[in-house]
Computed example of a mutant assay.
Amino acid sequence: MTVTLPDAPLIGDELSADLAAAALSLARRFAAGATLWVVSPQWEPHAHHVAVEFVHPVIMGKRALPSVALVEPDPLAQCRVAARPGDVIIAVASADQPQVRGIMRRSPAWGTDTIWIGSGERPPAGTATHILWVPSDDPMVPATGRFVLMYHLLWELTHVCFEHPGLLTPTTDDCAGESCVTCGDEGRLAEVLLPPATALDSALVRTATGEEYVDVTVVGEVSVDDLLLVHGGAALTRIGDEGVA
């Protein structure tokens, strides 16, 4: 799938593959009951537009998909309150937008997938579950139709996936192979909800699987919203502002 103008591609092969992968992942999340949360601190109309595309089935017979634009001054705080494990957060923003960087960094602790749409300098690999990026330094790109085209295609391809029910349930065993996130010897990201009342108490944290208490003796004093790497019921280290899970 390559969309072109007479002189240049709008959606090249690499971005087409990224769009297809993001659409399949999003369709699977919706099929499992997800809500889509959309943020765009720099360009609020994009947040509204994306949400409307998914919630308003303009094509006869298509599903209305739960989607909400979060446009208050602090979208990170909104996502923290609204998002639940299994949901998806879409951000339309540049790679240096601090609130979106914070959302992407914390989303593993919330149990959410993330899709980052933008242009210019690309975020580091792994920053979001899916990155849909225009490799252009033109500051006018967000105001042109290229962003709109990307999320229109994402919406349409998501519905294409719904037409093939066999695609909506992953066929691979998540615990197959040598490495398993659930069963293996891996740390998990956690966000502090309630610090210990005393030095002998545990901290209440939020992880992708829910709330739990963890021992924070190794990391020492913690505060609400701190990010921790936890394993085996204990916090191993604190994740700083520039840490990417």
Rank of each mutant, 00 (worst) to 15 (best):
Glu53Leu: 10
Phe54Asp: 00
Phe54Cys: 02
Phe54Trp: 07
Phe54Lys: 04
Phe54Val: 03
Val55Arg: 12
His56Tyr: 05
His56Arg: 12
Pro57Gln: 07
Pro57Gly: 02
Pro57Met: 08
Pro57Val: 04
Val58Tyr: 07
Val58Lys: 06
Met60Arg: 09
Gly61Lys: 02
Gly61Trp: 01
Ala64His: 07
Ala64Glu: 11
Pro66Leu: 02
Pro66Gln: 01
Pro66Ser: 00
Ser67Gln: 08
Ser67Cys: 14
Val68Asp: 05
Ala69Ile: 03
Val71Gln: 11
Val71Cys: 15
Glu72His: 13
Glu72Met: 11
Asp74Val: 07
Asp74Gln: 11
Pro75Val: 00
Leu76Thr: 05
Ala77Val: 11
Gln78Trp: 07
Cys79Gly: 05
Cys79Met: 11
Cys79Ser: 04
Arg80Cys: 05
Val81Gln: 13
Ala82Pro: 02
Ala82Lys: 09
Ala82Leu: 06
Ala82Cys: 09
Ala83Ser: 06
Arg84Leu: 14
Arg84Gln: 15
Pro85Arg: 12
Gly86Pro: 05
Asp87Trp: 08
Asp87Ile: 08
Val88Tyr: 09
Val88Thr: 10
Ile89Ala: 03
Ile90Pro: 02
Ala91Phe: 02
Ala91Asp: 07
Ala91Pro: 03
Val92Pro: 07
Ala93Gln: 13
Ala93His: 11
Ser94His: 11
Ser94Pro: 04
Ser94Cys: 08
Ala95Phe: 07
Ala95His: 12
Asp96Val: 13
Asp96Gln: 11
Asp96Thr: 15
Gln97Thr: 15
Pro98Asn: 13
Gln99Met: 15
Gln99Glu: 15
Gln99Leu: 14
Val100Pro: 00
Val100Gly: 00
Val100Ala: 01
Arg101Cys: 15
Arg101Leu: 15
Gly102Phe: 01
Gly102Lys: 01
Gly102Pro: 00
Gly102Leu: 04
